[in-house]
Design a protein around this nucleic acid. Structure first.
Lengths: 192, 192
DNA sequence: TGTACATCAGTGAACGCGCGTTCACTGATGTAC
DNA sequence: TGTACATCAGTGAACGCGCGTTCACTGATGTAC
């Protein structure tokens, strides 16, 4: 998809920029902010490290940009699910094995909470905004527009994914997702 | 508390060892595994960095030991709450502002999920064991010994704390804790 | 349309700093007699 | 109980590596005429 577009043209620069940010956005979601080294990243983007500073004033600036992208890209699937199947569909998508196994393309809210909590500035603000959006989305989809319920659901979604990823034991990890999923569905059924 | 006990005696060594591990256990919970530097840590423990390797074969070994301690120490309050007030008391303690504000003495399960997910080995196994213990504890305290419910509660507790810490906005952070707390209590009332 | 020139994306070597780890040394501890 | 000696916790300098950042250079791009 235009990976060959490397050169001195303005179009090539824009393409490189996008490529670098996208690669960073995925790497950060998978391995965390700290584990992304500039040189390695540039290689993954098909470039050498020297050119980095034609695109970003510092590593931090790239990280901020990449997190913005991660938050947007990572929430697309959730919005899409909401359109199709409401809160139930969000829950199924979020608590799926495929979401657990692919943090790099998944929700940044679940992938980065500790990195965000330890950092500051722009990324944290963007993260908070996304949490607020999720809260509003879920409140709208909850029987009776119950904000308490929306926060419980969001907390359970993020918590279950985070735990399912951290845990060593496949069986426990599956149970974490599956049981939380069932309990949330049951609860929604009950409320409506 | 014996902070003056520095010297060449066996007792002094044991005291130093404990001190280093405790300092590390707190620093790790507050700032993450990567942000703990050996020299800084030793200073905090009242020593110089050179002596570190009389106590640990490597930084990794200290981290493993410190995480073990963090998991044990961080779960004490939860067990204590369970004794006194069952699931409701656990929920109130876990979702309190003071727990949010003091990750360094709080539950390691909520403080370290991403660090653990990215690492491997001993710490991950210890972490999984603690998650299993919490699950069992909560299952026992849930009306009908409902494992689905226990996983939902655990996910919601961890998720709410993790989000409350990550978010920039005090108001949202408070709501995250408070609303999740209310929703969980309501749910438990309803089940019993 | 063609030509000369300035710009600048990308390259790869080099710098400097932080940090984990090593090491020679010191002096208190504890043990053998 | 006292003395000589080995051990080893703790010190602080030094090493080496990884990584963010800088820089001189190249050659394609795009612009002025």
């Amino acid at each position: 998809v235009g990976f060959e577009l490397v050169g001195s043209s303005q179009a090539a620069k824009a393409a490189s920029h996008t490529r670098i940010v996208n690669v960073a956005s995925r790497r950060i979601r998978r391995d965390g902010i700290d584990s992304v080294a500039v040189a390695e990243l540039m290689n993954e983007a098909g470039l050498t490290h020297g050119g980095f500073y034609r695109h970003f004033a510092s590593r931090d600036q790239l990280v901020a940009e990449a997190i913005d992208v991660a938050l947007v890209e990572g929430s697309q699937r959730t919005y899409a699910a909401a359109e199709v199947g409401g809160a139930d569909a969000i829950i199924d998508g979020y608590l799926s094995r495929s979401h657990r196994e692919k943090p790099e393309t998944g929700c940044a809210v679940a992938a980065l909470p500790s990195d965000i909590a330890r950092g500051n500035g722009r990324a944290r603000t963007a993260y908070s905004r996304q949490v607020r959006r999720y809260t509003e989305l879920l409140t709208g989809l909850t029987p009776g527009r119950d904000a308490d319920e929306a926060h419980l659901i969001l907390a359970a979604l993020v918590g279950a994914v985070v735990l399912a990823r951290a845990v060593n034991d496949r069986c426990l990890s599956d149970a974490m997702l599956e049981n939380t999923r069932r309990a949330l569905h049951r609860r929604l059924d009950h409320l409506s």
